[in-house]
Design a protein around this nucleic acid. Structure first.
Length: 587
RNA sequence: GCCGAGAUAGCUCAAUGGUAGAGCAAUACUUUCGUAAAGUAGAGGUUAUGGGUUCGAGUCCCAUUCUCGGCUCCA
């Protein structure tokens, strides 16, 4: 077995030390598991009482004592029978379950490994550090208490989990904590409120964001941008209703897949409806609305519209998980011989779009294939799936995407290429995706007439460029820390007259900007200049145009850049030229 | 849905069971200002909602709604 890196051994050993501390504090504790995770470790416990935050301080103190006492990590191999007996005596049902699991997985296993740290004995395959003293107590910290299901299964009992963070030295811990605090400052929920981009209402309901004028500008700009790129690759915009008869999703297979996540809409008439959880079946009906010829293909539809999923309450969070989801979704209906080029084009769209936001290169690609052990989760035929998976692999190789294969991550109808990014906390998020689908067109009997006058099923390629606008906005807010590039900025310019005497001149400048389709306002209030500049800075407005006596006389403006500060006085025409160039250069 | 924490002015937060308060924002007046916070004043509240305990509840108890950290799930 490969030895894990040192830091992981350290973190895992800390989990044992935490468990030993918990054992000291609450001898009746029943122990779950305690692995190393990114940035630290956790341990799950079944405890006689609920932990409170103050317990963390006590436990941390106890852990420091254990480290200081430099307890040895003593390894021993004992027989399975002996282990069962010992853990039964110690009243550790979870450990007994784990031993039985080991036995089930490997019936020939005769022994298990245990580690002793002071009085605490744990079932564990290791490896560990030799003794607790190897840990720098200043490089670790208990972080939080939470609940977690035993073995991660929601049918099981919920245990109490203690998370800790740990690094090899105090400096790294400090850096990590600084990173967390920076991420908190960038939190889209916080900035969304401060910059007045969106809000929620108790009366409207959770997971239903309301976009303010400013937030709506950003979403509109994103939409214009993504659509203009897609149009250049042959996509045509369509628009479909938010609901449909359940029959549509029965046919597509989504009814089964989404189950109770489907919103039912009761009608006073005979027919009841559901809110659409995806866009594809509606768009498919446009394809199906008339006879298609092979000459028409590929046919490419795109749409930015809402879809709805009845998420479990605890899963809704800010803009990251909502129940009214605005997606930018598109499909290409094409022939087998066209699939590869189609998919490559979609990858190019993704590249163009993410490059323009400075996000390209910060990703990795997942070749998401089916779960080979259970085909019942999917629709279609295995031979088509194999064909699809092969094709995706070729595309990855030909475009140098370096896709990493992940089993069980495929869509209902086919494998896909997922582009994975990281948020400010380093958590992985999947945004763009290109999906190959032989199954759906067959289910819907989609066809076209080929050269020989015979009907043939087209192949569908699904693609999402920015996923949901809600989540994408959240990502962008955090990526830019609220300071959007000029083209996305809800407020691009604020005109600030030095005093009220220059309001009229300021208004003239402002009107000029507005006439050039630039998002500008004028702040005429009687507050001090410094205060108005500060307010504009905090609102992350790209440029402040300060006008006073000098500027009025020379028909010019003093330009202040949000980042660079005072750029000096320039003629209005020159400034207009400058920002028009900046807006054009975004792509 | 589950485990836990929480909800006080537009925002950020105070208030041993005993008259709800501050800063910022907003408003009015004064100031007319040159690149990140001028001054003064008044106003702003059914303390999330509904019940209960109590002479008395922001504070204690119960329910509901919503938010946050996790788990599960996921675009």
């Amino acid at each position: 077995m490969k030895k894990p890196p040192k830091i992981e051994i350290l973190r895992h050993s800390l989990a044992h030390i935490l468990a030993a501390a918990v054992y000291e504090m609450l001898p009746d504790a029943k122990f779950g598991i305690g692995p190393a995770v990114e940035n630290g470790f956790y341990y799950d416990f079944d405890l006689p009482r609920t932990l409170i935050p103050e317990d963390l301080e006590i436990l941390e103190e106890k852990m420091r004592k254990i480290i200081k006492a430099n307890y040895k990590f003593e390894k021993a191999n004992i027989s399975v029978e002996e282990a069962l007996k010992d853990f039964k005596k110690a009243k550790q049902p979870y450990k007994i379950e784990l031993i039985k699991d080991i036995k089930k997985e490997n019936p020939r296993a005769k022994t298990v490994t245990i580690y002793r740290t002071g009085k605490f004995v744990d079932l564990c395959s290791g490896p560990h550090i030799d003794s607790a003293g190897e840990i720098n107590p200043k490089a670790m910290k208990l972080a939080k208490i939470s609940g977690a299901y035993w073995k991660g299964d929601e049918k099981n009992k919920m245990l109490q989990r203690i998370y800790g963070v740990a690094f090899s030295n105090p400096k790294e811990l400090r850096q990590y904590l600084a990173m967390i605090s920076e991420a908190e400052k960038r939190d889209h929920r916080k900035l969304g409120k401060e910059l007045d981009l969106f809000c929620f209402s108790d009366l409207v309901g959770p997971g239903l964001p309301l976009f303010t004028p400013k937030g709506t500008i950003i979403i509109d700009e994103l939409q214009k941008h993504v659509e203009s790129i897609c149009r250049s690759y042959g996509f045509q915009k369509v628009s479909t209703p938010h609901l449909a008869k359940i029959d549509l999703f029965e046919k597509s297979g989504h009814k089964q897949k989404f189950g109770d996540e489907l919103f039912n809409v009761e009608s006073h008439h005979k027919q009841n409806y559901v809110l659409k959880p995806v866009q594809c079946p509606h768009q498919i009906q446009i394809y199906a609305s008339r006879k298609r010829s092979y000459r028409d293909l590929p046919i490419r539809y795109m749409e930015s519209n809402k879809q709805y999923r009845d998420e479990k309450p605890g899963e809704i969070s800010g803009l990251n998980r909502v129940i009214a989801i605005t997606v930018e979704d598109g499909h290409s209906f094409c022939r087998l011989g066209q699939v590869k080029d189609e998919m490559k084009n979609m990858v190019k769209i993704i590249r163009d779009f993410y490059k323009s936001l400075g996000l390209w290169g910060k990703h990795w690609v997942s070749l998401s294939v089916r779960d080979y052990s259970d085909f019942s989760k999917y629709i279609g035929e295995k031979k088509d799936w194999d064909k699809c998976e092969k094709m995706l692999k070729e595309i990855s190789d030909e475009m140098n995407l370096k896709a990493i294969k992940r089993e069980g991550e495929a869509a209902l109808y086919g494998p896909k290429l997922d582009f994975m990014f990281r948020d400010t906390l380093g958590k992985e998020i999947q945004i763009p995706t290109v999906q190959l689908d032989f199954a759906t067109p067959k289910r819907f009997n989609l066809n076209y007439i080929n050269e020989k006058g015979k009907e043939e099923n087209p192949i569908m390629v699904h693609r999402a460029i920015l996923g949901s606008y809600e989540r994408f906005l959240a990502i962008l807010i955090e990526h830019f820390a609220g300071a959007f590039p000029l083209w996305l900025s809800p407020l691009q310019i604020e005109v600030i007259p030095v005093s009220e005497k220059y309001n009229t001149y300021g208004q003239k400048i402002n009107s000029l900007l507005l006439a050039s389709d630039i998002r500008s306002i004028i702040r005429e209030s009687s507050e001090s200049l410094g205060k108005r500049i500060r307010a504009a800075q905090n609102q992350k407005i790209n440029y402040m145009l300060i006008v006073g006596e000098k500027e009025q006389k020379s028909r010019s403006i003093a330009v202040r850049d949000r980042e660079k500060g005072n750029l000096g006085v320039m003629k209005i025409e020159k400034f207009l030229e400058k920002i028009k160039k900046e807006l054009k250069d975004k792509k």
